[in-house]
Simulated assay, not measured.
Amino acid sequence: MVLEGENWTNTSNIGHDQHDQVDMTYQTLLICKAVAVSFTAILGIVINITCLIVLRRMREMNPVTRVFMTSMTVADLGTVVFIASPVIPSTILDRWPFGDAFCTLCSMFNVNFFFASFMCLLNVNLERFLAVSYPFAYPLLVTVNRARMTAVALWFCSIAFSVFCSYMPGREIYFSKTMHTCLTGPLNHDETDIFGTAAFLLFVIIPFVTTLCLFLRLYLVARYHARQIAAQQTGHNTESRKAKAERKTFMTFFIMTMVLSIGYTPLVASTVYENITRISFPAYLVYLAEIMGFANCFMNAIIYYFRNSKFRREARKVLGVLIPLLNAGNEIESLTVGSSGGSTASSTQTVRHR
């Protein structure tokens, strides 16, 4: 298995003291990265599982939006479970400890969940665009069954593409020393990764640009509706509430898109730069970009919590049920530990007496 990335330990041309200093700096960076990724993974697992429960319980939510939001949450949860979590021990050990088979799976997960996140967000925004731009045709164009079929097709294409990337002729699976995860790349590591760059263009850059175009169109539609409302006299209050709801929904998904772009842009930029030039960014910059990408996996749920009152109300109910269960579990554990401790003390006294 090929090891790539910034090699901090290649210090044959420096003195002994400088060698120790560089090694200490490198170990400190590894510890900081492991702690940050661990914290991010725990938050991502808890928040996304809670989000899935809330989406399941929300009956007032648009069912089509719920399908696409659930698909996006599954992609975020898969990222923190199958990509971020293995990065923690590989960062601590500074090597891949899980074997070649799981390395192959992990490379597929990197392609699958990363591209699925962008495509799921594009689906959510496209659904909102159709709802606002074509309100009368929307019920006929967008149905729950079609939304489910679209989500299934998206995941099928994403999985098929990840398998293709891993077993495509002329490419191999390798362990990245900077990202501490398994990726796919060309057999010749000095060769420009045209295929990887094209994949980023097709599944990341184009969906993001398309989403921005949708937001621009939604902004123009919102302005047009505002002018119509101002010219109407009857039903003004009802239409105003509807316009406010549309504007709030528009801003919610706009914030989600901007947060996703901010979170993933450094990682995408460093990866595309390395694919084209075959020159790696400094390790600490890659660490920061990777942590920002992982942190983005639970930001959608947090944004939706603060922007949607129905989601927030249902989330509080779910948390109100889970927290007492956790407290009850802690009390039971304390009682168990206490009783076992008492039994141990009694047995110890018996042994001493004997």
Results as ranks from 00 to 15, higher is better:
138 Y>D: 12
115 F>N: 11
196 G>N: 02
156 F>L: 12
205 I>W: 04
156 F>I: 08
120 C>T: 10
228 Q>C: 13
139 P>L: 05
126 L>M: 13
238 T>L: 14
191 E>I: 07
190 D>R: 01
152 V>R: 14
176 S>R: 01
186 P>H: 00
119 M>W: 12
121 L>D: 01
186 P>D: 03
170 G>W: 10
142 V>G: 07
240 S>K: 02
180 H>M: 10
138 Y>R: 15
170 G>F: 09
112 N>G: 07
142 V>R: 12
144 V>G: 04
208 F>G: 09
143 T>R: 08
140 L>N: 13
191 E>F: 11
220 L>G: 02
120 C>Y: 06
128 R>E: 03
168 M>D: 05
217 R>A: 15
143 T>I: 13
210 T>G: 15
205 I>V: 15
163 V>F: 11
165 C>I: 08
195 F>Y: 11
209 V>Y: 12
127 E>M: 13
142 V>P: 02
210 T>M: 13
131 A>T: 05
177 K>H: 04
131 A>G: 09
202 L>N: 07
114 F>A: 07
124 V>H: 03
170 G>N: 04
228 Q>W: 04
142 V>A: 07
120 C>K: 09
179 M>D: 09
184 T>W: 01
126 L>I: 07
123 N>Y: 09
167 Y>P: 03
109 F>D: 02
214 L>W: 04
155 W>H: 14
168 M>L: 10
126 L>A: 11
151 A>P: 10
187 L>N: 13
168 M>W: 14
113 F>V: 06
229 I>A: 03
208 F>H: 08
127 E>C: 07
132 V>G: 01
198 A>K: 11
134 Y>S: 10
152 V>H: 10
132 V>T: 11
180 H>E: 00
219 Y>M: 05
183 L>W: 15
222 A>F: 00
182 C>L: 00
196 G>Y: 01
220 L>N: 05
117 S>Y: 03
